[in-house]
Design a protein around this nucleic acid. Structure first.
Length: 523
RNA sequence: GGCCUCGUCGUACAAUGGAUAGUAUAAGAGUUUCCGAAGCUCCAGAUACAGGUUCGAUUCCUGUCGAGGCUACCA
């Protein structure tokens, strides 16, 4: 039982004894006492005044006296300021907490619940490298997964790769046209960046061709349609869907380069997945489900052959689920994926970590899943705001995207620089130093991103390096101590383990109080 | 137009409906130094606006204003 709930039940019992009235935990609040007041925990009495017809002072006094008399080993003192009853927890209680939990490396974690939660996060596109927005996604998805694990759930971390579509074909066409057979190996460029470069090249060439056509007298719209490189990309998409062997081979080859590059980044930031899904597989299942849904009457077909769902009764619009030419739209594959995941894991809850521009999309998906007979109450869209630059949104076309690998390198570089300035690492080996700088740099980056409420947009200014001072400094200090111990294979102090490992999780308040009151014991 | 989200010191972010709205940075003053940087001390600075609910509102509700997103046979 946590400290707060222990206090709560003691207060409820006390009120019953003194006033013969029963309350529950919702009738009053228990907070940590503000540092400027004496005490550790505070019972807020205001809510109790009216039903008990008592003044704050009288109620505080009788309750305070009761608690001290009946729980002398728990409370040692109290004071009343306005309607706040500040309780001082006794040293013997703290000592008992410390003794019982000091060597418990699983302190704060819940027992197993036998419930499964699927968390989908990251969702990369296989035509370009990860950027800052992906980092927010990955940090959120990974953290939420680990928090849920600590809370006793069985968590399945999944990742859907958006590995098909016109954007992939653009990179492929540009590579065919301009690469002369170059590969990541031959150029020494990381695979995802290598492929991303051709995606950019496609854009540049496309622009050039449009200007040429416009100069020759074509209007803008027509030029955009007629540009040869775009027609090549569209043709490649058709060929891909038709399974043309050389196109499939090229697609597989270029995707494998990208995955190799992603692996490096994922390993570095600590993202891992229990299951990978590929849109190239799930979209086919989605199409099957559209067919079944049509039989069941969940969907309906318009005269032109396109398939829709009517969500006007739910306050939304009609939504297309399959084009008139029979090809899949974006949501088609998500329907397939949802069913696929449910059949595989029979989850109690399915969390999607996806940006807030898709709020509507997931509202629709949840409704469709429900209508198809999936238990959809557990579907939860963990929506987060964009990471913006001071100049506004990041845009690939304008080259204003902050690359994930670049920002990580920069953080680690700054970590190294600052650490060396402090000169506390003279006895580290080069390997230990590299590991240490990675820990510190990535820790600061994760903290910088995760400290912001997920649903809010956040601004990242690349001109100002991320702050290693202040709150982060304490994180860094713990990381130093812990990294060193781990690298030396020493036993890690459980307190360090907890604070460093889970500094990004909600910290157990009790342990923090212990640290403050008994620093000598912990160190 | 309709729907959704967000508006807090100059800036970036906090605050389960509770006490004097917190932290970091920048700014100002001082201190330290051969000079500079870093450091240390002090100081000032915000709930967009108007109502409502409540003993009590940054928090909940309504309206206004502002920012962003969605409203695609793009993904």
């Amino acid at each position: 039982m946590s400290l707060t709930t222990s206090i709560q039940s003691a207060v409820i019992k006390g009120l019953e004894v003194i006033y013969s009235k029963s309350f529950d935990g919702k009738d009053f609040q228990i907070n940590q006492t503000k540092p400027e007041f004496e005490g550790d925990y505070t019972v807020v009495l205001f809510g109790l005044l009216k039903p008990l017809k008592q003044s704050p002072d009288a109620l505080g006094k009788s309750l305070g006296d009761y608690l001290i008399q009946n729980h002398p080993d728990f409370f040692s003192d109290y004071n009343i300021i306005k309607g706040f009853l500040n309780l001082v927890i006794s040293d013997s209680y703290w000592n008992a907490v410390l003794k019982n939990n000091y060597s418990d490396t699983r302190y704060g974690r819940s027992p197993k619940k036998d419930k499964t939660i699927v968390v989908e996060y990251s969702s990369p596109n296989t035509n370009k490298p990860l950027h800052l927005g992906h980092l927010r996604n990955n940090f959120l998805g990974w953290s939420v997964s680990e928090i849920l694990k600590a809370d006793g759930y069985d968590v399945v971390k999944t990742c859907i790769a958006n590995d098909r579509g016109i954007h992939i074909c653009k990179s492929m066409v540009a590579w065919q046209k301009f690469a002369n057979g170059a590969t990541p190996e031959s150029t020494g460029i990381k695979g995802d960046h290598f492929v991303g470069d051709y995606y950019v090249l496609f854009g540049a060439e496309y622009k050039k061709e449009i200007s040429a056509l416009v100069a020759a007298g074509m209007n803008d719209e027509q030029a955009e349609m007629e540009a040869p490189i775009m027609r090549a990309a569209q043709q490649m998409l058709v060929d891909w869907e038709a399974g043309k062997p050389d196109v499939i081979a090229l697609w597989k080859k270029m995707n494998s380069w990208v995955y190799a590059g992603f692996d490096v980044t994922y390993r570095r930031i600590g993202s891992d997945f229990d299951a990978m899904y590929y849109e190239s597989d799930t979209y086919l299942l989605g199409k099957q489900l559209v067919e079944e849904g049509l039989q069941k009457g969940v969907f309906f077909k318009k005269e032109d052959g396109s398939v829709w769902i009517d969500l006007t009764a739910e306050g939304l619009d009609e939504k297309i689920v399959q084009r008139k030419d029979g090809t899949a739209v974006y949501i088609t594959q998500d329907i397939g994926l949802a069913v696929n995941k449910y059949e595989a894991y029979k989850y109690d809850s399915s969390i999607y970590v996806v940006g807030d521009e898709q709020n509507y999309h997931f509202k629709v998906l949840k409704l469709i899943c429900g209508k198809l007979g999936l238990p959809s109450e557990g579907i939860y869209h963990l929506s987060y705001g964009m990471v913006e630059l001071p100049t506004g949104r990041m845009k690939t076309r304008e080259g204003t995207v902050v690359d994930a690998d670049d920002i990580i390198d920069e953080m680690v570089r700054v970590a190294a620089q600052k650490t060396e300035e402090l000169g506390k690492v003279k006895d580290f080996t080069p390997e230990e130093l590299d590991a240490l700088y990675d820990t510190i740099g990535l820790g600061a980056l994760k903290f910088f991103i995760l400290r912001v409420d997920p649903k809010k947009r956040m601004v990242f200014n690349p001109e100002e390096s991320i702050d290693f001072h202040g709150f982060t400094a304490s994180f860094v200090q713990f990381s130093h101590a812990r990294a060193k111990a781990i690298l030396r294979n020493e036993d890690v102090d459980p307190a360090f383990e907890l604070l460093a490992d889970e500094a990004l999780l909600p910290l157990e308040k009790e342990l923090l109080i212990l640290l403050e009151r008994y620093p000598a014991t912990i160190q």
